[in-house]
Simulated scan of single mutants.
Amino acid sequence: MLFEPTLLVRELAIYRGAQHAYRASFHKGVNIISGENSSGKSTILNLLAYGLGADISTWSEHAKLCDRVAVEVSLNGSIVTLSRAISEQSGQPMDIFIGDLAQSEQAPTAAWTRYPYRTSQSKESFSQAVFHLLNVPELETEASGKLTLHQILRLLYSDQLSPVEKIFREERFDTPALREAVGRLLFGHTMLIYI
């Protein structure tokens, strides 16, 4: 049975030029990325979170050698590929392709739709686009405006540098109103995310 909204990560591809620097398929349930210390596990997870919409701009030396990340996801059963250029500048846009990763690699640029990180008067943000595909209502706070995928991923994904006693991944601009809005969205409107 599929609950809505559900985001299921199906495949991850990290590119260096036209070549894959890393590619992995995922299945429903728990997926384990294993390796020795300093083998790149955290880099892979950071790139996965970034591909899903997290705003990350501090990269490992290995991540800086790569150009782009693409994540094939199932959004309420619809297959979509999300792609972002790897950059040290925050607020990068996201390209969205309706179809799987293999199809996206063969598709012309015109088959993709580019969404900015932030909403403008002429275009919705990629967070809003993904929320629409998930049938998640828009939630807005007085202090920070509309909720973003980055803000939700801060609760779902914690890196090694965040204190273990914190629920949210550490960030400079963190308000109680923002944390409350994320909590209301996730727990008032349950959203299942499988990786």
Rank of each mutant, 00 (worst) to 15 (best):
E170K: 05
K64I: 04
H62R: 12
H189G: 05
D95H: 08
F97L: 02
I152K: 02
M191P: 02
G91C: 03
L65F: 03
F26R: 04
F26K: 05
Q89M: 11
L48K: 01
I98L: 10
R114I: 06
E142P: 03
L134N: 10
L186R: 05
N135G: 14
H132G: 11
E165H: 11
E72H: 04
Q106N: 15
Q19G: 02
S120A: 10
H189K: 09
P116C: 06
P176K: 01
I79M: 07
I79W: 02
P108A: 12
K123H: 14
S42W: 04
V130S: 08
Q128T: 12
S120E: 13
A70T: 11
N31A: 07
M94Q: 09
P116M: 08
E72R: 02
K166E: 13
D55N: 13
V9F: 04
G183K: 02
E11P: 00
G51A: 09
E142K: 07
E61H: 09
L161A: 12
R154F: 01
F168E: 08
A85N: 10
S74A: 15
L47C: 12
V71F: 13
R172Y: 12
A63R: 11
N37Q: 10
Q92I: 05
K146G: 10
V130L: 12
Y50C: 06
V69T: 13
Y115H: 13
T148V: 04
Y117R: 11
Q89H: 13
S39A: 14
A111C: 08
R118G: 11
S125H: 09
I33V: 14
V69P: 11
F187R: 00
V73Y: 10
E180F: 07
I44C: 02
R172F: 13
N46A: 07
Q92K: 04
Q151E: 15
D174T: 00
I98W: 08
R184K: 14
L45D: 01
N135Q: 14
G17N: 08
L45C: 10
L134R: 03
S42A: 06
S74V: 06
Q89L: 13
A13M: 06
V182D: 12
I44A: 03
E61M: 05
L139G: 00
G51M: 05
R84V: 08
T175R: 02
N46Y: 08
Y15I: 00
S39D: 11
T58H: 15
I152W: 09
A102V: 13
R172E: 15
D55M: 01
R154D: 14
D55L: 01
G99I: 07
G91Y: 06
D174E: 09
S78Y: 07
L133N: 07
A181D: 12
S104W: 09
P108T: 11
A102Q: 15
K41P: 09
K166T: 01
R68F: 04
L192D: 11
T141W: 04
E124S: 03
L65T: 14
E180I: 00
I56C: 03
G29D: 12
L2T: 01
G17K: 05
R68G: 03
Q89W: 08
V71H: 13
F3M: 10
S57V: 00
I193F: 14
E124D: 07
L82P: 06
H20M: 07
A54V: 00
L52F: 03
A24Q: 14
P116E: 09
I56A: 03
G40D: 14
L155P: 00
R118D: 15
V69S: 12
F126L: 09
A49L: 05
Y22R: 00
G77P: 06
